[in-house]
Nucleic acid binder design. Structure first.
Lengths: 341, 341
DNA sequence: TTTAGCACTCCTTTCGATTGAGTGCTAACG
DNA sequence: CGTTAGCACTCAATCGAAAGGAGTGCTAAA
């Protein structure tokens, strides 16, 4: 357990380091108006804090910087949640007044706003398609062998994929099956689509049962294709403005990560409800072991939809970012609710 | 007009500099087996070439590097088009054997292959939607006020947009109009869609003429939304591996460019038929004034469809890249032809 | 015309020397 | 006994001089 004075000093060091990116010395702390101790006293405390593992020294005659453990303690006990500035609130208000039509555009826009407000990189995981319900299924033949399967959800999302028409199935029959599916499956949550497809429709298919298996498998694959389309990144080059990443080799790995939608989806799918701060090596992905990732989930009626996140250096403005994400994730949930109902 | 010997020397300098990224000295050139002159002779020629503006000296006691004019001459007269290696041909053959279904995936894949074969950044501009013909038009109502307009082209491309249902238009009437449009406009090239829409359909609309205007305007807007979706980038972080960009400030502007699909589309739309090499400041976009951009257009029956491009440092492997782009753009044209016919 | 020789330039590397921010320890102070 | 002033010590960063070396330009000889 840290004493009040230790907390004050740790907190001051973290704040100062976040601002300056330079190791913080005892004199710097001592000069601050809210700390009424001499440099020598501070030094003793700093020495203790280092022994406890909260601080590190790049080298003997440098100031101290927070260790991962130090950041962790700061985030858990000391961080002062900044309230959003008038300017930031204005931006958000304006943004949510805009009522973008397509959900993709809305989410991309959220990412852009986040990265420009924070100067970090923002990553947003959109809701899974499976949470929506089927509005309309359509199959448009392109030629004798292939067709486009189109699925429209109640949120207005359109998913499509080119499929092969089962050999020997006439167009008329294809239409009949699709009509049947529409009649029976409209309004069904896509997560139940697969099972309902079999229970509701398969009995009425007559002689095309085997062909039909082939067809449904392809329609199902249309639903699975979207995993990587759920991820939206903005401000990736903001990483380059951070002094800790002025060395090209250090950013390369991070920037490469942003192109791997696959890895990002995995990283974000693992995020829990509410707000989570993962510092340095707490991240499972090695490329961002010198970064912190703050995520906030958004949900409707307790059902987890997706995650909003900010990636920056471990020396990140935790207070500001946490309150911003908290605010925004709630706004997003509200906005999503309009779509889903 | 340069003498044969000057050409040989210029060519050798450019080749060597492309390989090493270091200023090239007279001794280095002299040692090469195909140049039978002493360093002193080479020096005299280099001095002449510098006076003519083909070479530059970073400082008095350094070797020479090619100027923009030097690269230009090299590209126009000296470059040896490398034939593709067996390995590269294998990659391409394998790739085009794969027959990806969706055009988007195919194009994205082309970009990936290009960047991994060259270690530069590849940018591909896909064909305009307007070159395709209408296969099917569909409007799916979501609720009382909005619907999704879906356009399927003969290439299997699906474009969709959420539109507002004109006030006071019953669903049945909406369906009737869409059916009419489908009957009359199927097979029409999208570039003529707008004009045909009016001439073919407007007479038969009865009392909904004014509402109908509103509706068609929105359907038309679905076609225009795709401009930025035509651009595909791969290997953007390859820029970071080039020694001339080891300084973060120098790459920031370039990487930022890749996020501005808008600017890229403009840059690529301006590309002429065939292969073009734009060196340094020949590029209109300032961010890439230290880069060279090589583009190759692809077309069917003389109609320009799109452009494949490689962006790298001015010190780029011109010979290799040019022949690769040439080869690939022709393969792409063939592949596209299958879609369009 | 070509080339060997040589003085000269100037970047780069190296290596102390210096500087200065910051520490740890000790002893004095309230 | 906690706090602080004083002081010696450490070590990265900065600076400058010296050395090294790659490369040039010029001149004169082959």
């Amino acid at each position: 357990m840290l004493s009040e004075r230790q907390k004050l000093i740790l907190s001051t060091i973290v704040d100062d380091y976040i601002r300056s990116a330079e190791p913080v010395g005892s004199r710097t702390i001592s000069k601050r108006s809210d700390v009424g101790f001499s440099p020598a006293t501070i030094r003793n405390e700093m020495s203790d804090l280092e022994e406890l593992g909260f601080l590190e020294q790049p080298h003997t005659s440098a100031g101290r910087i927070p260790s991962h453990k130090g950041y962790r303690y700061y985030v858990d006990h000391l961080v002062k949640l900044g309230s959003l500035s008038v300017k930031e609130l204005d931006v958000l208000k304006l943004f949510f007044a805009e009522r973008l039509q397509e959900m993709e555009h809305m989410i991309q826009h959220v990412a852009t706003v986040l990265s420009s407000l924070t100067n970090y990189t923002s990553i947003v995981l959109g809701p899974e398609l499976l949470n929506t319900t089927l509005k309309h299924l359509q199959i448009v033949p392109l030629n004798d062998t292939s067709a486009v399967a189109i699925i429209v959800t109640n949120t207005g999302h359109v998913e499509n994929k080119i499929i092969a028409i089962p050999e020997g199935m006439p167009v008329g029959e294809l239409e009949r099956i699709v009509n049947l599916m529409n009649a029976r499956l409209s309004g069904v949550p896509l997560i139940h689509f697969k099972s309902r497809l079999h229970s509701e429709v398969s009995s009425e298919l007559g002689k095309y049962v085997s062909k039909y298996e082939e067809l449904t498998r392809m329609i199902e694959s249309t639903l699975q294709s979207d995993e990587e389309d759920r991820i939206f990144v903005s401000g990736s080059t903001n990483m380059l403005t951070q002094p800790e990443f002025k060395d090209v080799d250090k950013v390369k790995g991070i920037l490469d990560l942003f192109d791997e939608a696959h890895t990002l989806v995995k990283l974000f799918s693992a995020a829990p409800r509410g707000i989570q701060v993962r510092i340095g090596t707490e991240n499972s992905v090695e490329a961002i072991n010198n970064c912190s990732l703050i995520t906030a989930s958004y949900s409707i009626d307790g059902q987890l939809l997706g995650t909003v996140g900010i990636l920056g250096p471990t020396r990140m403005e935790y207070g500001k970012v946490i309150s911003l994400l908290d605010h925004l994730s709630k706004d997003m949930a509200l906005m999503m609710a309009r779509w889903y109902k």
